[in-house]
């Protein structure tokens, strides 16, 4: 079976975010970019499926500007077989991304699509569930374990109360939590090899879907700052503050 893995290019998670002074968004010029961390986990899971003989081929896909080719090369260097860039300069919202991915699924023909549970820029946590709805496939979200057998996957997922296990019949959509696996780093020989792997570029506008934004961003602001605090010298001082100044403990 083929596995399709959508990967998004985002600001590296270590970078301190700066809001633009005109409140139009956050600064992305000259900022280190990387693959969304959840998507690295998704690629890793697909590679392990191939290594275990469950999958035959891993295809990475990204929707974004030309620069997203870098992210796809990273996926190829990790070990993906092929990549597809759905190119657009527009900022595409999760609903639009899911519509474009729906087309990509029709083209590639995977039996499993593994996405990250959320993109760490928009923090939407929507695309996988939306794609599953469009395909009318089962969805296994926030996965911490996935075991494939007999056209099914036993999927453990992180909930607010603990861990839940579902049985999903394939084809299915899975979204990853960070604890699903630890992604590998691409080594130099694989980075070299990745340069020769196929990377197809398709124009998003040619895919016959309406991915125009439904949300208008009116402004983006810095969050409220906290008042600076104080370093105390002893546990007794702390208890005094909490009990008598803040009155938050009895």
């Amino acid at each position: 079976m083929k596995v399709l893995v959508p990967v998004k290019r985002v600001i590296d998670y270590n970078v301190k975010i700066r809001v633009k002074s005109d409140q139009s968004g956050v600064e992305t010029e000259n900022v280190k970019m990387a693959m969304n961390p959840f998507d690295e986990v998704a690629i890793e899971e697909a590679l392990r499926m191939r290594e275990a003989g469950v999958a035959t081929e891993v295809v990475a896909v990204s929707i974004g500007t030309d620069k997203s080719q870098e992210t796809l090369r990273t996926a190829l260097a990790m070990g993906a077989d092929e990549a597809m860039l759905i190119q657009t300069d527009a900022d595409v919202e999760p609903l639009g991304v899911a519509k474009l991915l729906h087309k990509a699924v029709e083209k590639v023909g995977p039996e499993v699509v593994i996405l990250g549970k959320q993109a760490i820029d928009d923090d939407s946590n929507q695309t996988g569930q939306m794609l599953a709805a469009m395909l009318d496939w089962p969805q296994g979200t926030f996965a911490s374990k996935a075991e494939f057998s007999d056209g099914k996957v036993a999927l453990s997922r992180e909930t607010d109360d603990g861990i839940e296990t579902l049985n999903l019949s394939l084809p299915a959509v899975i979204t990853t939590d960070l604890r699903l696996n630890e992604p590998r780093y691409p080594n130099l020989p694989n980075i070299m090899k990745a340069k020769k792997k196929p990377l197809e570029v398709i124009q998003a506008d040619s895919m016959g879907v309406d991915f125009a934004s439904r949300l208008t961003v009116l402004k983006v602001e810095e969050p409220a700052e906290r008042e600076p605090g104080v370093i105390l010298g002893s546990v007794d001082e702390l208890i005094d503050k909490l009990r008598n100044v803040e009155k938050v403990i009895s």
Binding site: I11, K16, I17, V19, V26, I120, D121, D122, D123, V217, K219, V220, E221, E222, P223
Partner: peptide, 8 residues
Amino acid sequence: IYAGNAMA
């Protein structure tokens, strides 16, 4: 957005 480092 961005883990609460910006509010949209």
